[in-house]
Every structure is written in structure tokens, then in C-alpha cells.
Amino acid sequence: MNRFLLPLSIFVVVVGFLGIGLTLNPREIPSPLVGKAVPDFSQPQLYDREKVLSPADLKGKVWLLNFWASWCNGCKTEHPVLMELAKSGEVPIYGMDYKDQQDEAMAWLRRWGNPYPIVGVDEAGRVGINFGVYGVPETYVIDKQGVIRYKQIGPLDPDTVAKKIIPLVKQLESQ
């Protein structure tokens, strides 16, 4: 090959990568926890501080864990989608109220509706750190054995729910 073509070939490769780069989101960080056991926690429940929410109690079923907060804008965008999904009864969504005030969180759920059978409280953000949460909302799909199967970063939208979450849940249910 002509050595004078070398710069051009390198450039073509770089442009190819830059082109692919345009379709990617550099802020979305894949979780190393997918495929691993769900980190254990035992957090007080929002509506009953005496009781706890813990993955151990949810073994044997497929469930979603949704990190949210009343101060988070993306959560409001996502909320109708969660309400819809909860209504469909496809899969239970457990909530984790992340770094929030109890009264504000309750007021928020009163106002926009409550899709969660149980909401845990993570006041200090520790559970969030164990889940590798770096921005709310984030949603995890957890299978019957307590293994994380999928992580949604940012708000769920109807399309993702229909094309990713529901088929995945169905498949995990049948296992």
C-alpha cells in the first residue's frame, strides 16, 4: 500500500468512530451489577417506619426497584409510565425514596398517585450507592433468584416499557 495513504486511512477510521459516537450517550454508564445478585438492604418503609423493605422478602418473584425522589424532575416525567405499568399488573414496582424528606415524598405520591406496593426510604443514599445509582430515576429489573437483570438509567418511557421491560419480565417469569 502507498504509505501516503496512511494518514487518510487513519482519518477514515477516526471519522467512523466519531460517527458512531454521535449516536451514543457519553453520560450513560452501564452498571457492572447487571447479572449479579441484588445488593442486600433492609430499609424502613415510607408509610410504616416500623416495617422494612428487603429483597429477601421478594425472593421467588420478578420485581422492579425504582429509585425516585420528590425533588427529581425526571421522576415526574416518568411517573405516568410507572402508574400505567402498575395498573397493568404485569410486574410489581417497589419504590426506593432516595435522599428525600418523608413528608414531601408522601405529598408527592398523594398528588401524582402511588404505583408502588411498598416504598422503602433511603435517606442517606447508602442503598443508592450500593446499587451504583448516580442519578434518579433509575430502575432495576430483578429476577426470581434475586439477580439484577436490567438497569434503566433515567426515566422509563412507554417505548422502553413495551419493548424491553415487559418482554424481559415475561421471560423471567417463565423461568
Partner: peptide, 8 residues
């Protein structure tokens, strides 16, 4: 940290 957030 890496086990939670990856090499990022």
C-alpha cells in the same frame, strides 16, 4: 467503587 459504578 468499581464493583458499583464500573471502571468509569
Amino acid at each position: 467503587l468499581v464493583s458499583r459504578y464500573g471502571d468509569f
